[in-house]
Design a protein around this nucleic acid. Structure first.
Lengths: 390, 390
DNA sequence: TTCAGGATAGAAAGCGCTTACTACGATGTG
DNA sequence: CACATCGTAGTAAGCGCTTTCTATCCTGAA
């Protein structure tokens, strides 16, 4: 059917082994032989059979990239960063190029596990997990097991934009009695929690979500805001918790009472959640002068809700985002936000996946944010809040 | 090293063939045998060796998706649509799932060819090419050859958001004399142009770029605009040409003189190009009351330039985009634009790639746009630059 | 002139899976 | 009761490549 190595070998008058060596360039081959082989390759339009090659060599050119949603620029930009390194355009020889298998998990741990297996099955050379993790111990245990399996299979694992695997919540005293701690998994069965020492420690590029949220809240406080609402993401995610913690830390440091749950509405990471959440915030806390959103997209939704409520941003209510996606600077008003170097993070994750870059000491590198002050924040209004129009 | 079929077979006390049959479920196996095998699979944590499987079965679970830039929501959304179909989350059995290999070509035809070869090498089950094509005949000929090769290798090819391959520019009279028409390729060598009849005709989902641009221009004209600038994309791309043609068609139909090149500035498809282009447009045509941009991103850049020039959108100058990316509705002012159902188009491309959906009759389906009138367009100002009313 | 040793290239044994083809009871039918 | 048939499962031949081991030819030193 298709042209094979043997066909090329026959045409060039050499053995299949020689053709393979010419094509892989890891073995000395005489110049004349080499050019004869290359000509035969050209003439027959030979294209290596990847699966056969992967089988024999026990490696593949595939790198898995797990994202919540590839349509979301947050993940798209990270994926772009990864690709910029695993398939550099400027390298003349495409042989070194790895291919990115992008898997949309929807943020679901089950999907994540499914894709991990699928990628292991493809014998992917590496797997990059992006986006925050779900904190449920059973999921963490299952993920730990899956990652350990993958690492044992010889693939690299990189976490990009998520914290290292959490240690088990239960203290490790069970070890003394020779019993493993367990928890109840999503399927109702008992799941063994890995001992802290057993956790796989893949290379990890964590985002400083706490620091970024804290900087944003401090910015609002320094402008004079005292009643600040927070539009949080889904409660079970690490990203949500860390950003919320940073936010609260700033409030507490400023002596602003903000008990648990106060002025906080949980939602999703999308625009509509921001819209709905802002409406609820306004209803429950009419005195708010600022809203910090879980991310830029949420902030945009919040702005829409505020406009609709007849409130101006930032004159009546200030709004902050997070991430600094490209549209944040173009929005009107341009969003004050915490910039995350997503492309760079993806690029570095790509390098780690290739094994070109060494894992950071301790396995974890924290990627900082940069405060971007734009037009969506201003001092709170001094007078009474103008009457609501509805 | 890793667990193989034979290990599972030994453990279950059956032959490797039986294990394979259980795992692929395409052959009758007795219930008791099946469960014994499945238990062995569980116990050994067996994961199929994909490359071996692909080699033996001569197929793979990979589907290539070529995009200009995965970080651009335009392509991210299409890719998301593709994934929604080739890896449906609701299907309980992940075995049917295909994996998307996303390749960022930067819009370069050379990169496109490189990735096509790389995907053919992986024996991808299908390849989806998105984004507009470059019209250069040499590139088209090379692309045609590559696609023909891929189809011969048994993979499906789908074009999503780009027109069918163009017929050779040279008339086919050479055929009468038994000579093929040729052109000069990018590497300086002579390239044979495929006869029209030889062009591969992959399933094609073309966007109605002409219609969309025409509708936008007609909208501006109906508002009373007479001096309309156009921010075009890169000159060599089909998308650029088609949108420009639609735009001009509307102007001509309205009897507005708009000779070639008039009030048109070419650039790229990004924000900065819109910014620079709008500045140039303003400088060269101070009387403009409207600017139609090649897409939403360009429109955003144009808005920024206008604001900077002290012009209000839409009071002084109206602006239109194209695509209706999510941020278009959130921009201030919200962009009037032509909506392209990118997710749906991607989904359909996915179905075509799987072979689940039949190619459209004639091979080409045109995907229409929908005019979205929002706040960025309004009648031209009546003051210093009065519009003629007739 | 002879032979060690380097430079090349071939032979052949897998890599782990799929899939004819074959074998063999257990049914069913004439 | 013999034989065709069906349902199951095993045998074994590849799929196309990589790589170890081996063979050959040449070169230059002894």
């Amino acid at each position: 059917m298709a042209v094979t190595l043997a066909d090329v070998a026959a045409r060039a008058g050499v053995s299949a082994a020689t053709v393979s060596r010419v094509l892989n360039g890891n073995y000395p081959v005489a110049g004349t032989t080499r050019s004869r082989v290359l000509r035969a390759v050209e003439e027959l339009e030979y294209v290596v059979n990847g699966p056969a090659s992967s089988l024999a060599a026990a490696t593949s050119d595939l790198i898995g990239v797990l994202v919540n949603d590839i349509a979301d620029p947050f993940f798209g930009i990270i994926a772009g960063g990864v690709q910029s390194r695993i398939a550099p355009v400027d390298a003349p020889d495409p042989r070194g190029r790895k291919l990115a298998v992008v898997c949309t998990t929807g943020g679901s741990p089950e999907q994540e596990l499914t894709y991990l297996t699928l990628l292991q099955r493809q014998r992917a050379a590496a797997v990059i997990l992006t986006g925050g993790a779900v904190e449920d111990p059973a999921h963490q245990a299952a993920l730990a097991a899956a990652l350990r399996r993958i690492e044992r299979a010889g693939a690299r694992v990189v976490l990009c934009g998520r914290p290292p695997l959490s240690p088990p919540v239960v203290e490790d005293e069970g070890g003394a009695r020779g019993e493993a701690a367990t928890t109840i998994g999503p399927d109702g069965t008992e799941v063994a929690l890995p001992r802290a020492a057993d956790l796989p420690r893949p290379a990890c590029l964590a985002f400083d979500n706490r620091g970024g949220a804290r900087a944003l809240a401090e910015h609002l406080i320094s402008l004079g805001h005292r009643e600040i609402g927070y539009l949080a993401g889904p409660a079970e995610r690490t990203t949500t918790r860390h950003r919320l913690e940073g936010h609260r830390a700033a409030l507490e440091a400023a002596g602003l009472a903000d008990g648990a749950g106060d002025r906080v509405v949980h939602g999703r990471f999308d625009r509509d959640s921001g819209y709905e959440g802002a409406r609820e915030l306004l209803r429950r806390f009419p005195g708010l002068t600022a809203i910090a959103a879980a991310n830029d997209t949420v902030a945009l939704g919040a702005c829409a809700a505020l406009r609709e409520a007849g409130l101006r941003v930032p004159e009546d209510v200030s709004v902050t985002g997070f991430d600094d996606l490209p549209f944040a600077a173009e929005a009107a008003p341009a969003l004050t936000t915490a910039r995350l170097p997503l492309h760079e993070a993806g690029a570095r994750a790509g390098l780690l996946a290739l094994g070109v870059e060494e894992p950071p000491p301790g396995g974890v590198a924290v990627i900082g944010t940069e405060l971007r002050v734009r037009a969506s924040t201003a001092p709170p209004p001094s007078g009474p809040r103008p009457a609501r129009t509805d």
